[in-house]
């Protein structure tokens, strides 16, 4: 029994894992380059907390998205099932994570002025979702492989 092509999710080859790992130190390297190139002190580029956070979230999200969509060494039905489950678990935890941030914002806006959560951006949502999926996937793989 075969799935329709439109439903199938294509996965990257195992080589892409190495590419994915490059995205984790990338924002730090980028900021270091900007600082050493003296672009910041000249005022050409302003490095603010939100920009740094967005840069980190976006870069890590790309890395994690590649990782969760890359084939394992031995790709079979168990790995496929675990991957599918981890997407469901990841989305479930994203709802909790975003819910917590929204709650912190609400408390900050209506009550305690000292409390403020991180701004909710597309990069943050993608990072949280891909991180939860990746962690759920690795945890389930570890659970089935431990003796």
């Amino acid at each position: 029994m075969k799935n329709e092509n439109i439903i199938k999710v294509p996965l990257f080859g195992t080589v892409w894992k190495k590419v994915a790992y490059l995205f984790f130190p990338l924002p730090i390297l980028l900021i270091a380059v900007l600082v050493t190139a003296d672009l910041v002190s000249k005022g050409e580029i302003k490095i603010q907390g939100e920009l740094v956070a967005d840069l980190c979230y976006a870069s890590w999200a790309i890395g994690l998205i590649i990782l969760i969509n890359t084939k394992e060494k031995e790709e079979d039905e168990m790995i496929n099932t675990i991957r599918l489950q981890s997407f469901q678990t990841g989305f479930y935890w994203l709802m909790w994570g975003l819910g917590a941030i929204i709650l912190i914002h609400l408390i900050g806006n209506f009550g305690v002025q000292m409390i403020s959560g991180p701004p909710i951006t597309a990069a943050l949502v993608m990072f949280l979702l891909s991180a939860y999926i990746y962690l759920a996937f690795r945890y389930q793989l570890w659970k089935v492989s431990k003796p």
């Binding site: 029994m1 031995e74 039905e77 168990m78 099932t81 659970k143 089935v144």
Partner: peptide
Amino acid sequence: VGVSRQTINSIEAGKYVPSTVL
């Protein structure tokens, strides 16, 4: 059966329930 050794090990240990096809 066209799967990994790890999958057979997980099925034997009751950690993974195989599909009907498998």
